[in-house]
Measured scan of single mutants.
Amino acid sequence: MTTFKLIINGKTLKGEITIEAVDAAEAEKIFKQYANDNGIDGEWTYDDATKTFTVTE
């Protein structure tokens, strides 16, 4: 398992979430479901060097 981080730069929600996932594809699926569940819709980026996803509304 690898640790992945999501940085949320939303209009109403900001913060960071860290999860353990098998790979970046699994982490992205989990993070996008979390964002969808919380009404966050924005532009996604991923930095493989730091294993960090960012979503900006």
Rank of each mutant, 00 (worst) to 15 (best):
I8M: 08
L13A: 12
F53I: 02
M1P: 15
T2C: 02
D23V: 14
D47S: 08
K51E: 03
N36V: 13
T52S: 13
V55L: 10
T18Y: 12
I30Q: 07
I30V: 13
T2M: 11
F31C: 01
F31V: 14
N38G: 04
D23N: 14
Y46D: 00
L13P: 03
A49I: 08
T18H: 05
E16D: 02
D48A: 13
F53S: 01
K11A: 04
G42L: 04
A25F: 12
E57R: 10
D41Q: 08
K51R: 08
Q33C: 02
A24E: 04
T50Y: 08
E20R: 01
T2D: 12
V22I: 13
G15N: 11
F4I: 03
K14V: 13
I8C: 03
T45M: 15
E16N: 13
T52W: 11
G15P: 11
I17A: 06
G42T: 02
K29V: 14
E16T: 14
T45V: 10
A25T: 09
N36D: 05
K29R: 08
Q33P: 05
E26W: 13
E57W: 13
N38W: 06
T45H: 06
T52D: 05
Y46E: 01
A24W: 15
L6T: 02
K5T: 07
F53R: 00
T54N: 07
V22D: 09
I7K: 13
F31Y: 10
A27R: 00
A35N: 07
I40K: 06
T12M: 02
T56Y: 09
N9R: 09
I17N: 13
T12Q: 07
T45I: 07
D41N: 14
A24M: 07
A27M: 01
I40C: 01
G10A: 14
A21K: 08
T56E: 13
Y34C: 01
D48C: 12
D23F: 08
A27E: 00
V55G: 01
F53Y: 15
E43C: 02
E16F: 04
I8H: 14
G15H: 07
G15M: 05
I40R: 02
K32I: 05
E20G: 04
I19E: 06
Y34H: 10
E26H: 13
A25W: 05
I17M: 02
D41F: 08
I30Y: 10
K5Y: 05
T54A: 11
D23M: 02
E26C: 02
A35Y: 01
A21M: 09
N38D: 05
Q33M: 13
F53V: 01
D37K: 15
Y46H: 05
I19G: 13
D23Y: 11
T54E: 12
Y46I: 08
A24H: 13
A21Q: 01
T18A: 14
T18K: 05
I17T: 10
T3A: 07
E28H: 11
A25G: 09
V22Y: 02
E26Q: 01
D23P: 01
T3S: 08
W44A: 01
G10P: 05
G10D: 14
T52Y: 10
L6G: 04
A35P: 00
E43M: 11
Y46L: 08
T54C: 01
V55M: 12
E43Y: 07
A27H: 00
K5C: 02
D48V: 06
K5I: 05
G42M: 04
N36L: 13
E26P: 05
A27G: 13
T50L: 13
L6F: 10
